[in-house]
Design a binder for these strands. Structure first.
Lengths: 328, 328
DNA sequence: CTGAAAGCGCTTACAG
DNA sequence: CTGAAAGCGCTTACAG
């Protein structure tokens, strides 16, 4: 049997297709008794509105494209969830594309996605901004977690939390700290180091900058040697993966966390909660971020001038921070 | 300026819209010189074909719906990637929906997804199969990692690898083993226990069955007490998360892995590789699985009778398995 | 190789 | 509150 349409329903009921259409899109315009008969017949015929037809008629596809640099990185699944949820709340679906950690592929993926969607969300992109902006063209788009001139932006600002972390470390008697820089091409890497540097200055702590490192477990693990050599007792890692690597590398060398070292991660990924001891880290308000992103996208689509927004990460103290050895 | 269409290009060039359309969809039917002028003008006008119009005309949306029970579970992101990749290879996009670990929501989400897509991929669903099948209706669909009568299925079969794991443990002198059952509503939970039970019987090992447990770090950690009480020296956990919890719980109680205990996980999630010692576990061929799934979906859509497929997990030996204590 | 025309299934002014 | 009609932007037999 053929697909049910508003015409088959209309014919069945001896009314016009317009009325059937309205029963679904503007129900208040249709007399109640008629509406009920329409709904019943639709149900019975297994009618489902054609998204293509509706999209063609209204110019809306109801789809948002979401480009993720690497879905395998534990930071992103919760972000994807938050965005998908926010989009669903506005009646949009999410077309997901994963760049598989290949920054150079991003502009091409954006271009592919573009014709299918009403708006684009580009998360933590690694490609040059010019290429990205060219690929985006006139399509409404918002960038997450990277500043980018000419495109609206939603970022999480870990500065205040990092400052608080440094303050706590110093208060705990850690007067020499290591900050581990993230990947050279990660936008957040420079920001985090700057924030830590400023805070260390304010708190009068000595700061050793190490890296750049890849945001990976293995890099953190290998860095344990350098960390030990530095003489510091407090470490701020670029992210949780790196911090977990440090935890492991330190353990291999017979050092205990938090007895001998204090360690702070960033992002609060699942691993941070599951490692032992659980990681002191910085937690981003992802739901809030998802809502801002989708809202912003909506704004851009309506031609409004939207402001960049930054949400604040919060310090989550768990088991890897404690008073320095030799402190009362 | 208005959106460019095949008509604006046709007008610009003084040819018919049909020819413009063909230049994109069946280029070999268009004289080369004409085709090149069309492409050039399209480029210059910033033309992008309307997916809605194309979908309406052809009856194809080019979209596959993917329902994931919990994107936050580290097993799924690599699966999502594999499916997205396979779908892209066939020219389809993936509309992602996350059930947020709420099995009861699955049928509703399927119903929502259905009208927008050409086919449905339902990964590791937890909802009752009747409700799921009703929600799927006539839409082509394939189920991943759960058997389900009446819907084509692609599962990973960890039986042989589990058997091999048991054989290795016994060969290493572990004659008393624990198998930790997964969540009661997880289809894979029963299968894994059965496989281990059969293998233990064959290999003459004594088997203690514990659980069911939630597939979470904390449950594994708390189970360490029971494991110690059992007197076993080899543990097969339902999945890697649980295994990592066991690792941690055992460490808290002063037991070392693999010196005092051998431990086998399942799924080979990122965490399995990043924990110390790295987890011996079972690795699923996800790319292969993704290809099978999309292929199957294609088959169903064309009305073919497709066979269920099972791909095989393989044992990946890493650092948590070793000869039993007291073994030469 | 190209064009004219119908059709895909909706929405939405417009008129009543 | 309802209907007739045009239009959204493509594809695709059909005819040439």
């Amino acid at each position: 049997m053929k697909r049910a349409t508003i015409y088959s329903i209309a014919e069945e009921l001896g009314i016009s297709a317009s009325t059937v259409s309205r029963a679904f899109t503007r129900p208040e315009l249709v007399k109640r008794s008629v509406r009920e008969r329409i709904l019943a017949t639709a149900e019975q015929l297994g009618y489902e509105p054609s998204w293509a037809a509706r999209g063609l008629a209204t110019g809306r596809t109801g789809l948002i494209g979401l480009l993720i640099p690497d879905i395998t990185n534990p930071f992103f699944p919760p972000l994807v969830r938050a965005i998908e949820k926010a989009a669903a709340g506005r009646g949009s679906g999410v077309l997901l594309v994963d760049a598989e950690a290949n920054g150079a592929a991003e502009p091409g993926l954006v271009a592919q996605l573009k014709p299918q969607v009403e708006g684009l969300i580009i998360a933590s992109p690694r490609a040059p901004s010019a290429a990205l902006k060219e690929a985006v063209g006139q399509t409404p788009a918002v960038v997450v977690n990277r500043a980018m001139r000419g495109l609206p932006t939603v970022v999480v600002d870990n500065g205040p939390a990092l400052r608080e972390a440094v303050r706590n470390l110093v208060a705990d008697g850690h007067h020499k700290l290591v900050v581990m820089r993230g990947p050279a091409d990660a936008w957040a890497a420079a920001r985090r180091v700057e924030a830590v540097r400023a805070a260390a200055g304010q708190e009068g702590a000595e700061l050793v900058e190490l890296g750049p490192f890849e945001a990976q477990f293995e890099d953190g693990r290998r860095a344990a040697r350098e960390i030990l050599a530095s003489g510091a007792t407090g470490v701020l890692a670029f992210d949780d993966l790196m911090a977990c690597g440090v935890l492991s590398g330190l353990a291999e060398r017979g050092r205990r966390v938090p007895d001998d070292f204090s360690l702070v991660g960033c992002d609060d990924v699942l691993l941070a909660r599951t490692v032992t001891p659980a990681l002191t880290t910085i937690t981003a308000p992802l739901e809030e971020l998802g809502n801002h992103v989708v809202e912003r996208l909506d704004g851009v689509a309506r031609g409004e001038a939207v402001k960049d927004v930054r949400v604040r990460g919060e310090l989550t103290v768990r088991g890897t921070t404690a008073p320095a050895p030799g402190t009362s």
